[in-house]
């Protein structure tokens, strides 16, 4: 009884700031001046918007993959370190997150610019300057940079909580380092990997602003499209329809990841 009392403010918060906005999106997506309509949804499924959606998914997929390839080894190294060192190093990953992501993205503009630090370095090494800013690679870099901590932290948590006796047992039974990692550590860390993938993929697919700042408006993503519909074109109907489509996509991908997480958990258990 007591517990539900304490949860009440949270329930109110959820109702006002999470549930109500979603209802509003649904309302605007399916109405036009108060009347029910499917026109917004039909417009939202237009081939042009789908093309942007596919570009966003593809970019989010690559960003997630890169975050995983970079983040897992970092998390693994951190988990092998002395506790104090690891804590200190993980602070380095977390501290930049205290600063607004827009500011950090602006900083990348300066670094990648034709007259920026990276290009000056290339030129001073007698190499030709490169067009780095306003490329798709710059957008990808911005996404990986911004979302990497969301991959490292869950994987790191799972790895540090892992019972060291599992690894010792594997070693005792004759597994070498590689075998121990791929047959024991990796499967046991899957829940962390999956929550990391979820935490990177969802914000990556809803990215906006990064694509405008680092892509120079050349690589419009689904988030930019939604922003445009609301702020530039003042078209709340189709903006909400696009949000609705993305919401469904996010829910589907979360369901898929949940199932994967459960399976990974079971497999981890099955190992023993």
């Amino acid at each position: 009884m007591k517990r539900t009392v304490f949860a009440a403010p949270y329930a109110v918060w959820m109702a006002i700031f999470i549930f109500a906005p979603m209802l509003l999106i649904g309302y605007y997506a399916f109405t036009d001046g108060g009347d029910f309509t499917l026109a917004n949804m039909r417009a939202g499924l237009d081939a042009m918007y789908m093309q942007v959606l596919i570009r966003s998914i593809w970019l989010a997929f690559r960003a997630t993959l890169l975050c995983l390839l970079l983040g897992y080894p970092i998390a693994y190294l951190l988990s092998r370190m002395k506790h104090g060192t690891a804590t200190l190093l993980s602070v380095f990953f977390v501290v930049p997150m205290w600063m607004n992501f827009l500011l950090r993205t602006y900083a990348w503009q300066v670094l990648l610019d034709s007259g920026g630090i990276l290009n000056s370095l290339l030129i001073s090494l007698n190499m030709p300057g490169q067009q780095l800013l306003y490329t798709e690679a710059a957008v990808l870099l911005g996404m990986v940079y911004n979302f990497l901590p969301f991959m490292i932290l869950p994987v790191y948590t799972v790895l540090t909580k892992m019972d060291a006796s599992h690894i010792e047992a594997a070693r005792d039974l004759g597994a070498n380092g590689m075998q121990t990692f791929f047959r024991v550590v990796l499967p046991l860390s899957m829940p962390g990997v999956i929550s990391g993938v979820t935490m990177v993929f969802i914000p990556a697919i809803t990215t906006f602003a990064i694509s405008r700042l680092l892509g120079g408006g050349m690589f419009m993503l689904y988030g930019d499209l939604m922003e445009n519909q609301f702020l530039l074109l003042n078209d709340w109907g189709s903006g909400s329809a696009l949000s609705f489509i993305l919401l469904i996509l996010v829910i589907i991908s979360m369901a898929v990841m949940r199932r994967a997480e459960r399976q990974a958990g079971e497999e981890g258990a099955k190992l023993w």
Binding site: L225, N228, L233, D235
Partner: peptide, 10 residues
């Protein structure tokens, strides 16, 4: 104009 612009940008 808006639709044309969205298509150009997309």
């Amino acid at each position: 104009y808006n639709k044309a612009w969205t298509r150009i940008k997309a």
